[in-house]
Amino acid sequence: MNPSQPTQEVKIPRILVVDDMPDNLFLMNGLFEDRYQVIQAPSGKDALKIVMSDSPPDMVLLDIMMPDMDGYEVLRRIRQHTPTANIPVIFLTALASQQDERLGMDLGAVDYLTKPVDPELVVQRVEAHVRATAHARRVEELSEKLARHLSPASWERLFYGAELEAIRFEQKQQTVLYAEAAGASNLSERDRDSFAAEVEWLATRHGGVVDRFVDGAAVIFFDEPGPCVRMAMDLQRSANELHLRMGIHTGICDIGTFRSDYEGRCTLIGIETGLAAKVAATAASGSIAVSPETYVLVRDEIQTDTSGCLLTEEFHDSDLAQICLTPTPQKGEHVLSTFAGLGL
Rank of each mutant, 00 (worst) to 15 (best):
G308N: 11
D261I: 12
M65F: 10
D20R: 07
V60R: 04
T304P: 01
L242W: 01
V38H: 12
A203F: 03
M1R: 05
G216L: 02
A179R: 02
Q303H: 10
A136I: 06
L27P: 11
A196H: 06
G256I: 11
T114R: 12
T82Q: 14
M69I: 06
W155M: 06
D68F: 10
P327H: 03
K45Q: 14
G332R: 08
E165C: 10
L146E: 14
G108M: 05
E120W: 08
R157M: 14
R212W: 03
T133F: 12
D34I: 03
L320F: 09
R77C: 02
R205P: 04
R192T: 10
G343W: 06
L113G: 03
A94G: 14
V290R: 01
T282M: 12
R137G: 11
L103H: 15
L244I: 08
I220Y: 00
A132G: 09
S185L: 07
G208Y: 02
S260W: 04
R102K: 15
L31M: 13
P88Y: 13
V209A: 05
K49I: 10
L297Y: 04
R148P: 03
L62K: 10
A41Y: 05
L297S: 11
E272M: 04
G286Q: 02
G308H: 09
D70R: 01
V214G: 02
G208M: 02
S97K: 11
G286F: 00
I252F: 04
A109Q: 08
T328A: 08
L158H: 02
A162W: 14
D106N: 15
N24F: 03
R299E: 12
Q8T: 08
L310I: 07
A289G: 13
Q171E: 15
H316E: 09
Y178R: 04
Q174I: 04
A283F: 07
A179K: 03
N2Y: 13
D46C: 09
Q322R: 15
E101K: 15
R157Q: 14
V209I: 05
V229L: 12
P67F: 14
I78L: 07
D54R: 06
T282W: 08
W201Q: 04
R14P: 06
S143Y: 00
A128F: 14
V110L: 11
D305S: 09
F213Y: 09
N29W: 10
G183V: 00
V290H: 06
N240K: 00
D20F: 07
I269Q: 13
G183L: 05
E189R: 13
D111L: 07
M231N: 01
L342Y: 11
L61E: 01
H135A: 13
A281G: 14
R245S: 00
T267P: 07
E73Q: 12
T273H: 08
A277C: 05
V122P: 11
A203P: 00
L244D: 02
D254H: 11
Q40H: 01
K145A: 08
S291I: 03
E141Q: 10
H135I: 10
T82E: 15
T304C: 04
G308A: 09
S337V: 01
E9C: 02
V51Q: 09
G270T: 04
P327M: 02
L336R: 10
P22W: 14
M233Q: 08
P67I: 13
L242V: 01
I323F: 08
D319V: 01
P22I: 12
V126W: 04
E301W: 13
V290I: 14
G161I: 10
E127G: 10
